[in-house]
Nucleic acid binder design. Structure first.
Length: 497
RNA sequence: GGGGGCGUAGCUCAGCCGGUAGAGCAGCGGCCUUUUAAGCCGUAGGUCGCAGGUUCGAUCCCUGCCGCCCUCACCA
């Protein structure tokens, strides 16, 4: 606020206040969306209309000025002529680029045919004390774009479009499940025991109950309680939180879709996923099923490829037995993976991820995962070492995870106890006895699904980074003292009385 | 956490071999009634991310730190 440009604008604002004008009026003529005027503009010649929005760069010709006015629906040139704006003209410079204005005038064109609103009434709606970024390049600096998304959004129209697409995707997902008679529900984000995924949680505390709480890793265990309760078909689209690293495909908070359907197994859910993608291709992509992602093309039109987890593992690791620790350990060392203190099943899966995931161009369903890495999935009847579970991969990126839900409370309790016995910071320190109790009341066979909505948006929009589909990605806080040197750093603690 | 890159005016970017900074846009003053990246004349604007070091002299070389981007690790 101390730079000269802001002060120029501040002076204009103060001059307006001195003249009795409100630079931030509560209400101005709102008019109509610009986008409504454009399609049949030629027929509207001579019409008097009002539009409101943000002013672009002013092109000044002395007794004539032009500027574009933009709202969420479009952009239209406004012409300010001295002869039509006798009262406004002397103070015309008080309204400048980036100000928010409401303008009434007559529709027409310029000599070169540019659709133009010839202003007869100009009302300042809100004074901008800071200028817009450069008109031609917009805001380019990545960091500034994320830290000041509000500027990024108005300066770079394609950013607004990207988030409009995200909205459309989420709406399409909702529509798909709604049409299948699923109920959209909301379950606790603050959870006393974390579960539903293997990850480190964020920890918080409730004062009145003096209780440690975790921000949820997943809604899974609550949604399945609803299946016990007879809701039979439920889904939730909501934020989950994982205290992990940040990368182009990870944000500490992200949006997850989870759905559960009674009387379905993982084969039915596979069909649901294919149905969902078919719906997204139609509704979001307009039938154009091929998307470009990380410089490669993917056809999202179902049906998708399928491959068994253990088959893929065997292909990439000939002679290695997933279930034999010594065998996996040797392979992991060969691959240069971390092996110290890693549980055998985790290590085996690390070998899978290191050797197989990058080969999964997809879309492909990887199915029948080992039970040891699938603590909530039901075992295959023919082979108790594996579960009825699949994941969906595109471009080596895991998009979704689904399985026939484990509804045997005795098996479930045993697996929870195994987790507790081998507790690390990604597993809870206690059995979720209430969840086991819920299963004891009887849960119908059910199929469940989780899809990372952010990654889905990345794929459908061709975004390389998750930050381009998250409006406000988590960034390190800028510490005003950080750059001031050690001497200027804030004291570690206030002096004790 | 490891590796690589970047940080210069409000914004977009130059800046050579080390000689303490430039352009365009935005701003300010002026000319112009049909421009649309308007044009022309003038003017102002800088802790070169921060702190040290080397040097007669550092935006430039070195070290540390801060932040962002990419990548690997971890994860979805």
């Amino acid at each position: 606020m101390t730079d000269g440009i802001a002060n120029d604008r501040l002076e204009k604002l103060q001059a307006m206040r001195a003249a009795g004008q409100d630079p931030f009026p509560a209400r101005v003529p709102r008019g109509q969306p610009i986008g409504e005027l454009l399609p049949d503009f030629a027929q509207r010649h001579g019409q008097v209309v009002t539009i409101a929005g943000r002013l672009g760069v002013v092109r000044d010709f002395g007794k004539l000025r032009f500027a574009h006015l933009s709202d969420r629906t479009g952009s239209l040139q406004v012409g300010f002529q001295r002869d039509r704006l006798a009262a406004f003209w002397p103070n015309r410079k008080q309204i400048e680029g980036n100000d928010l204005v409401s303008i009434t005038g007559e529709l027409g064109t310029t000599q070169k045919g540019e659709p133009t609103l010839w202003a007869t009434d100009v009302v300042l709606a809100s004074k901008a004390l800071r200028p817009a970024p450069e008109k031609w390049h917009g805001l380019q600096d990545q960091e500034q774009r994320y830290r000041m998304r509000y500027v990024d959004l108005f300066a770079n129209p394609e950013v607004r479009q990207a988030f409009a697409l995200r909205s459309k995707i989420v709406r399409a997902v909702r529509h798909y499940f709604d049409s299948l008679d699923y109920l959209e529900v909301e379950t606790p984000i603050l959870q006393p025991i974390f579960g539903g995924a293997a990850a480190r949680p964020f920890v918080t505390h409730h004062n009145a109950l003096d209780m440690q709480l975790y921000l949820r890793l997943a809604p899974e265990l609550y949604l399945k309680r609803l299946i016990v309760g007879g809701m039979e078909r439920v889904y939730e689209i909501g934020r989950v939180f994982r205290n992990e690293g940040i990368s182009t495909r990870h944000n500490p908070e992200f949006t997850m879709l989870e759905s559960y359907e009674a009387w379905a197994d993982y084969r039915d859910i596979m069909a649901r996923v294919e149905g969902l993608f078919g719906h997204l291709v139609e509704v979001v992509l307009g039938g154009q099923s091929v998307v470009t992602f990380r410089e490669k093309q993917y056809d999202l039109k179902p049906p998708f490829q399928k491959a068994r987890y253990l088959d893929l593992f065997a292909q990439q690791n000939p002679g290695v037995d997933w279930f034999d620790h010594a065998s996996c350990l040797a392979r992991a060392r060969e691959l240069g993976l971390k092996t110290d203190g890693i549980e055998p099943h985790k290590l085996a899966n690390d070998v899978f991820e290191a050797t197989v995931e990058d080969t999964l161009q997809g879309p492909i369903f990887v199915h029948d995962y080992p039970v040891a890495i699938s603590p909530l999935a039901k075992r295959m009847s023919g082979d108790p070492r594996v579960t009825e579970r699949f994941e969906l991969f595109v471009c080596g990126m895991e998009l979704g995870n689904a399985f026939s839900e484990l509804n045997d409370p005795i098996d479930q309790e045993q697996r929870f106890q195994d987790q507790v016995a081998h507790k690390d910071d990604e597993t809870p320190g206690e059995v979720d006895v209430d969840y086991v109790q819920a299963l004891e009341f009887g849960m119908p066979p059910a199929g469940g699904l989780g899809i990372g909505i952010d990654r889905l948006c990345m794929l459908l929009s061709g975004s390389t980074s998750i930050r381009d589909v998250v409006l406000f990605p988590l960034l390190r806080r800028l510490d005003p003292n950080a750059n001031a040197g050690a001497d200027a750093a804030a004291p570690q603690a206030p002096p004790q009385p």
